[in-house]
Design a protein around this nucleic acid. Structure first.
Length: 569
RNA sequence: GGCGCGGUAGCUCAGUUGGUUAGAGCGAUCGACUCAUAAUCGAUAGGUCGGGAGUUCAAGUCUCCCCCACGCCA
C-alpha cells in the first residue's frame, strides 16, 4: 500500500464549467483517485475553486453582489455540481481561504529572503471612473497601426499588432466605457523565475515518463527566446491575498494583492490544511512536508494544457525556491482540449454542454464513461452527439447493462432469484478465467500509468468476455439437457456481474453501486484472484433483478439536444 | 512569422527502441443464437499510414522540404 496525493487544477470561480473543463482535469483525477482507493492505497484527493482576480470582481459586480458573497455562492454551486458528477474530492477548498492567505504570504516572504522576488516600477492605466487599474485586455481604442476601432490594449484583433495600452488612440475602459484614463506609476513584485531556470530544466529532464504534452510545453517555455522569464505576481486589486512578507507588511505594496497564478497553486497545500481544519483529516504535513512523512508520497497533478506552464515552471519555482521541504509533483498528467461539434466550446455564446446542463439530461455515469473513454490525451478530441449516443448505447447499455440484464432475467425465469447450485467448472471456464486475468492485468497496467482511454478500452474488453462466454456456452440451450451445467454457467454469469461492478467503479460509480446492491453483494474488494472472485456469490445467495442499468439515448433525444446546445438560441 | 501537438480504414483512435501479410471499437455486409435493453456472438469487406524526396537490407516509425488542422507565443 502506497500513499497518493492527487490534485486537480482548480477551476475558476467565475461561472459553471463545460464538459471540456471537466475532462481536462477533475474527471480523470477522480478516476485515478477512485482506482487507487479501490486498490487499497491511501489517497488524498484535493481540488478547490480559484477565486481571485479581476474576472471574479467583474462577475460579482455584474451580479450586483459583494465579491466575497458572490464567490461563496459560486463555490457552493460548483461543489454541488462536482458532487453531481461524483467527483470524490477529500476536500473541495477555496483559494480565498484564510489558510491560503497565510501560506501565500509565507511563500512570498521566504522567496523574498532568498532573493527570488524583486520590486519593479511600471506604469499602468488607471480608470478613476471604475476606481481600478485596468488590465490591458480591458482597455480598447483605435489601433494606431491599422485604424481598427476596437483594438485591445494588448493586441489589435484586426492587424494582430502587439500593442501597449498607451499606444491606443481614444482609449476607453471596456468595463464602464470611461475615457478619462490616466497612466499611473505603480510598483509590482516579480518572481525571479529566470534565476531558477537551470534548476527547473534539470528537474524536467529527469521526467522521461511524463506525457509528451507536459514536457514539451515546459521545455518550450524554458528555452524560448532568452529562456524562462520573470513574472509579475502582484496586482492592484482589492480582492485577493494582501501582499505581505510572511506576517510583516511590505513597504510600498499597500493596497495590492498577489496575482492569481501565484496564490492558486499554493492553494493545493492550503487545501490540505482546510481539510484538516474542517475536521476531515488529522495531519496535512505528512502529505506535503517531506520532513514530516511526505517523502514516500507519490504526488500526481492533473490539468488541461493551458495550465501546464504554471505547474511545471511557476509553482516549482515557488516550491524549490523556498528551499523548504515541500512536496514536489512526481507526475504531471495533462490533457488537450475537447471540442464541440466541429468547433470550440464557448461560454459566452452558450455553445456546448455545461456541467449543470449535462446532469439535467442524463445521470453522471453516462457522461463519465463517454468523456473518459474519449479523453483528449494524445491530441484535441471532439464531442459529437452522434458519437456520444452510439458510444453510450453500445458500451453501457448493450455490452454491460444488457449483460447484467440477460443473466439475471434468465436466472429468475429458470432458477428463481437466488444463485443456483450445482455443476462443476470445466475447461471453458478455466479459459474464461485466464482471459479475464490477462485483461485485468492490462486494465490495471493502463490505470497505473493513467492511460485513460486505453484503460476504458481494457475495461470494455472485460465486459465483452462475459458476453462471449455466455454466447458460447448458451445456458438457455444447456438447460434442456443438463440443468446442473446450466446452473453452473448461470452462477458464473451472476458472479461476473459482481466482478464487473467492482472493476468498473472508478468509471461508473453509480451503476457499480447499484449493481452491487441488486446482487446483495457486500464484498466489493478489488480482486487479486479471479477464480476466487467468481465464487463470491455462493449458491443460494438471493439477489434482485436490476432495473435497466443504462437506458438508451433515442434519436429524437439526440436531435433535440443537438439543437438545444448549439448556441443559437 | 516562430514554436508546439497532430494529420493512420466511412467515424473515433492504437501503433513500443525502424523488422514478417498496418491493428481495435463503432458503422457496413453476411451468418449464428433467441437468455437479454430489436440486445449478444462469429465472419467478411474497407487504408498507396497528408504529399514529395532521402537514409537503410528494411520506414506509419528516422532526416529534409511542402500542404492541412488546432494551439501557444511574438
Amino acid at each position: 500500500m502506497a500513499r497518493h496525493l492527487i490534485t486537480s487544477a482548480i477551476p475558476y470561480i467565475n461561472g459553471i464549467k463545460h464538459l471540456g473543463n471537466l475532462i481536462g482535469s477533475q474527471l480523470p483525477a477522480d478516476l485515478y483517485a477512485r482506482y487507487l482507493r479501490a486498490r487499497g492505497h491511501e489517497v488524498l484527493f484535493l481540488c478547490a475553486t480559484d477565486e481571485h482576480g479581476t474576472p471574479a470582481e467583474l462577475a460579482a459586480s455584474k451580479a450586483g453582489k459583494p465579491v466575497a458573497e458572490y464567490c461563496a455562492e459560486m463555490h457552493t454551486v460548483q461543489a454541488d455540481i462536482a458532487k453531481g458528477f461524483r467527483l470524490s474530492f477529500d476536500h473541495f477548498g477555496r483559494s480565498s481561504s484564510p489558510q491560503n492567505h497565510v501560506l501565500t504570504q509565507h511563500f512570498a516572504g521566504v522567496l523574498y529572503d532568498r532573493g527570488l522576488i524583486r520590486e519593479v516600477s511600471e506604469t499602468q492605466m488607471y480608470s478613476p471612473t471604475d476606481g481600478r487599474y485596468l488590465p490591458d485586455r480591458y482597455i480598447e481604442g483605435t489601433c494606431p497601426n491599422c485604424g481598427f476601432d476596437s483594438a485591445r490594449g494588448d493586441q489589435c484583433d484586426n492587424c494582430t499588432k502587439q500593442l501597449d495600452p498607451v499606444d491606443l488612440i481614444n482609449p476607453h475602459s471596456t468595463i464602464s466605457g470611461a475615457t478619462d484614463l490616466e497612466m499611473r506609476e505603480t510598483k509590482h513584485l516579480y518572481l525571479c523565475q529566470s534565476k531558477m531556470k537551470d534548476q527547473i530544466a534539470a528537474w524536467i529532464d529527469t521526467k522521461a515518463d511524463w506525457p509528451i504534452l507536459t514536457t514539451s510545453i515546459a521545455r518550450k517555455w524554458l528555452t524560448d527566446g532568452d529562456g524562462l522569464q520573470d513574472r509579475g505576481i502582484t496586482r492592484d486589486l482589492d480582492w485577493g491575498v494582501a501582499v505581505k512578507r510572511g506576517t510583516e507588511d511590505w513597504p510600498g505594496m499597500e493596497g495590492k494583492v498577489f496575482y492569481v497564478w501565484f496564490d492558486a497553486p499554493i492553494e493545493y497545500i492550503a487545501c490540505a490544511q482546510e481539510w484538516v481544519d474542517a475536521g476531515n483529516g488529522t495531519d496535512w504535513q505528512r502529505w506535503w512536508r517531506t520532513d514530516s512523512g511526505a517523502a514516500d508520497v507519490r504526488y500526481t497533478q492533473f490539468m488541461g494544457k493551458d495550465n501546464v506552464p504554471f505547474h511545471t515552471l511557476s509553482f516549482p519555482v515557488t516550491i524549490l525556491g523556498s528551499e523548504e521541504p515541500w512536496k514536489l509533483a512526481d507526475y504531471i498528467k495533462s490533457f488537450n482540449y475537447l471540442n464541440y461539434e466541429g468547433g470550440q466550446f464557448s461560454t459566452s455564446r452558450g455553445r456546448g454542454v455545461f456541467m449543470d446542463q449535462a446532469l439535467e439530461i442524463l445521470p453522471p455515469d453516462y457522461w463519465r464513461w463517454w468523456l473518459l473513454s474519449h479523453a483528449p490525451e494524445s491530441s484535441d478530441a471532439e464531442f459529437t452527439w452522434e458519437n456520444f449516443q452510439s458510444s453510450v448505447n453500445k458500451d453501457l447499455a448493450d455490452v454491460l447493462g444488457n449483460f447484467a440484464s440477460r443473466v439475471t432475467k434468465f436466472c429468475r425465469s429458470k432458477f428463481g432469484e437466488a444463485v443456483p447450485a450445482g455443476g462443476i467448472m470445466g475447461a471453458r471456464e478455466d479459459q474464461l478465467i485466464a482471459d479475464l486475468g490477462a485483461r485485468l492485468a492490462d486494465y490495471q497496467s493502463q490505470m497505473d500509468t493513467i492511460e485513460v482511454r486505453k484503460a476504458a478500452a481494457a475495461l470494455r474488453a472485460l465486459w465483452v468476455l462475459g458476453n462471449e462466454y455466455l454466447q458460447e456456452v448458451a445456458p438457455w440451450t444447456t438447460i434442456k439437457t443438463d440443468p446442473e451445467q446450466a446452473a453452473m454457467q448461470t452462477r458464473l454469469g451472476l458472479n461476473l456481474i459482481r466482478l464487473y461492478a467492482v472493476l468498473s467503479s472508478p468509471f461508473i460509480p453509480d451503476a457499480s453501486a447499484q449493481l452491487l446492491a441488486d446482487l446483495n453483494a457486500d464484498d466489493a474488494a478489488w480482486p487479486d484472484d479471479i477464480a476466487a472472485a467468481l465464487n463470491a456469490l455462493p449458491a443460494g445467495h438471493a439477489f434482485t433483478v436490476p432495473e435497466v442499468t443504462f437506458r438508451k439515448i433515442t434519436d429524437d433525444e439526440r436531435a433535440a439536444w443537438q439543437e438545444r446546445f448549439s448556441g443559437q438560441r
